[in-house]
């Protein structure tokens, strides 16, 4: 195994490790939610392995439990996953020189946290082996954590009282991802505009308001970056 692969894997893993702690409550909550929707442990783990997406799983779960039509379940899943088209396009240049099977694997295990951690170096480093390892090590680590702690959550569901509101841990996990990003002002503006728009547009059908809000947030962040840049250049 070439050493650039190994150093890339180590650096990616170390960069992602602190953030990956946030996956633990997420996965526990996911396991508990699937168990309380009435899935057997086999069905719950089946969904967890086949879908491997917290937001899409949590978003479609109530629809599956209510026996909603298949098209509505799929439309909801797609709306929740549209952001990944954007992530995929943004990180794609980081996979130049990487084989097609490795790209499919990379695509399957693309998650918000791994994208946020890996994007910068994926675009800057030249060595394709280093880049692939820097991406895959944290992505596969997230996969393992997701499966193990969902399994624990599935079996723990029966023992934890509902009043504990463990589902709120999932919200805190998203906050932990968001706060470090929002330290830069254009990012903060992108987050505020995205969040407020999603709140105002929450009654749009099929949760499409989320997609519109993300686009509004991106636009606002980009505009803020240009405005700041322009102000610095002109004395």
């Amino acid at each position: 195994m070439p050493s650039s692969f190994r150093t890339g894997a180590r650096e990616g893993f170390i960069a992602f490790l602190p953030l990956s702690v946030g996956l633990v409550p997420w996965a526990l909550v996911m396991g508990m939610a699937m168990a309380s929707a009435g899935f057997s442990p086999l069905q719950a783990m089946g969904m967890n392995i086949i879908v491997f997406a917290g937001t899409a799983q949590l978003g479609t779960l109530p629809l599956i439990a209510a026996e909603a039509p298949l098209w509505l379940i799929l439309a909801t899943a797609l709306a929740l996953n549209l952001r990944f088209v954007i992530f995929s396009a943004a990180i794609a240049p980081g996979f130049r020189g990487v084989s097609a099977p490795a790209r499919w694997l990379a695509g399957h295990v693309l998650t918000d946290g791994v994208f946020a951690v890996c994007l910068d170096k994926m675009l800057k480093v030249d060595d394709p082996k280093w880049r692939l390892a820097y991406y895959l090590a944290p992505a596969l680590w997230a996969w393992v954590l997701w499966q193990v702690f969902a399994l624990i959550g599935i079996f723990a569901a029966g023992f934890i009282p509902k009043q504990w509101s463990l589902e709120f841990m999932a919200t805190v996990a998203l906050i932990v991802l968001l706060v470090p990003m929002a330290r830069v002002r254009p990012m903060l503006i992108a987050a505020l505009v995205g969040g407020i728009s999603a709140t105002l547009l929450r009654n749009m059908p099929l949760r499409l308001g989320v997609v519109v809000a993300i686009c509004a947030g991106i636009g606002a962040g980009f505009a803020a970056e240009h405005w700041e840049h322009g102000r610095k250049v002109q004395p």
Binding site: M181, A190, A198, G217, E225
Partner: peptide, 17 residues
Amino acid sequence: RALRYAPAAALAAIVMP
């Protein structure tokens, strides 16, 4: 470059509502 703002916007769009 614009797409770099996607994760922050998406996370906030899920959390804030």
